[in-house]
Amino acid sequence: MQRRVFLRTVTAGVGAVAFAGSLWQDAAGAEPAALAGPYGPLGPADANGVALPSGFTSRVIARSSHSVGGTIWHPAPDGGACFADGAGWIYVSNSEVPLIGGASAVKFRADGSIDRAYRILSGTHLNCAGGATPWNTWLSCEEIFRGRVFETDPYGNRGAVERKKMGRFKHEAAACDPVRQVIYLTEDESDGCLYRFRPNTWGDLSSGRLDVLCGAGSGVTWQPVPDPEPAVFEKQTRHQVSAALHFDGGEGCHYADGVCYFTAKGDRSVWAYDAEAETVRAVYQGGGTLDGIDNITGTAGGDLYVAEDGGNMEINIITPDGTVAPVIRIDGQSESEITGPAFSPDGTRLYFSSQRGTSGEMAGTGGITYEVTGPFRH
């Protein structure tokens, strides 16, 4: 795949650094267009309350507090990812509640039927998002003050391990860059930062260095965080380096083709860090069809899929030519948010959750996890 370039020049509240350029060459200098998109317009909501383009279908695979595959599905389902498992696959989902939090997994057979479900992490707090690693583990992140990162086994064979060197802060998402052998991390604070963790040995997260993204003239650079594990009353990670860039409410994170895409809910933006050019630019800024920007995932072909926290409960596609359009909408759940979008290994199924479902309860006992099948672009 050819390298992508960015959409437009912005400054958008990240200090005095001017971020020049445009995402995806054909769209340089243009505003994203709110169009029907590559799949056409959404049809009326189906029996599951999900509006989809023609040719797509939905099913409910799990409900919070109900049994699925022999286990009770967790409340407040949040960040997720898929993992290949022989002829089948596994979908992992976090639980964004205090005290019991953690994460669960659903194992699918080759025909898409559910084999079983099981817990892979328990006893943690407000596990929001995270990220998959190239060595097939799931990084589950706590979205709390001095939150932690836990490396878990989606296959359920090994216990979870806290990865202390990845920092203690209000973690959101993680995305692995196998070329530079680093892991990017977002922070859900109004003045949050973008971090990268460089393990001493790629594939072993027990030791390494935590850096923070900083402004450097017309570009950006990385500086080490002096104390990645500050005590409660010490200066927290986002305030330790004066040159650090700050983003308003870091959320989802996705790496592809040399670019780390990450979202900020405060200014309703999708940002992109080009690891080769060492620049940060905006892929999208709020004001159009996409609102309540939160979790993000993507495809090998360059499409991004961004889920809304609130808004009108949509997952929108952002294509390489700059088109922004809804692909999925959940009706009748305005007090919820869409979380955990992740494609099956073959790219034909998209999994996600409505964290609070129709109830809107903050405890998340009404959470619903969906699967949408259709002719997704690869």
Rank of each mutant, 00 (worst) to 15 (best):
D153N: 00
G159M: 11
V161F: 04
L139E: 06
W138L: 12
E162T: 11
A129D: 12
C141E: 11
E143M: 02
T124F: 02
R168V: 00
P134G: 09
F169D: 06
G131M: 04
E151S: 14
F169N: 06
R163V: 07
T124N: 10
T124G: 12
K170N: 12
R148F: 05
G130L: 04
M166F: 01
G159W: 01
K164R: 14
G156D: 06
L139N: 07
T124V: 13
G130H: 02
R158T: 11
T152N: 11
V149S: 13
E142M: 02
M166D: 01
G159E: 14
K165S: 15
C141L: 12
K170T: 12
V149H: 09
G147V: 00
V161T: 14
M166H: 01
S140R: 01
H171K: 05
R163Q: 12
N136P: 07
E142I: 00
W135D: 09
E151C: 12
P154S: 14
K170D: 07
S140A: 15
G167R: 03
L139P: 07
V149M: 11
W135P: 07
E162F: 04
K165W: 14
K170M: 08
E151A: 15
K165Q: 15
D153L: 00
L126D: 10
G130T: 05
R158V: 04
I144C: 13
D153K: 00
K164M: 12
C141P: 05
E151I: 07
H125T: 10
R146L: 15
R163T: 06
H171E: 02
M166A: 02
G167C: 07
N157K: 14
N136F: 01
F169V: 03
N136S: 15
T133Y: 03
Y155W: 05
V161P: 06
K170E: 08
A129V: 03
G159N: 13
I144Q: 13
E142V: 02
L126R: 08
K170A: 10
A132K: 09
L126Y: 06
G130M: 04
I144H: 10
R148M: 07
L139G: 08
L139T: 08
F145I: 14
R146A: 14
T133D: 08
C141N: 14
Y155C: 02
T124H: 08
C141A: 14
S140Q: 09
M166C: 01
K164D: 13
P154K: 05
R146E: 13
G167M: 04
S140G: 13
L139Y: 03
D153R: 00
E151Q: 14
W135L: 05
H125K: 05
N127T: 02
K170I: 06
N127D: 01
A160Q: 00
L139S: 07
G167T: 08
N127V: 01
R163F: 04
R148H: 11
E143Y: 01
E143C: 02
C128F: 06
F150R: 08
G130Q: 03
N157R: 14
M166R: 00
Y155G: 06
A129K: 06
R168G: 03
G167Q: 07
R168M: 06
F150E: 13
T152S: 12
D153Y: 00
L139H: 03
E162H: 05
W135M: 04
N127I: 00
C128H: 08
G130R: 03
T137H: 10
F150A: 15
E142W: 00
G131I: 05
K165G: 15
W135F: 10
P154Y: 02
K164A: 15
C128N: 14
P154A: 13
S140L: 06
R168Q: 08
R148E: 09
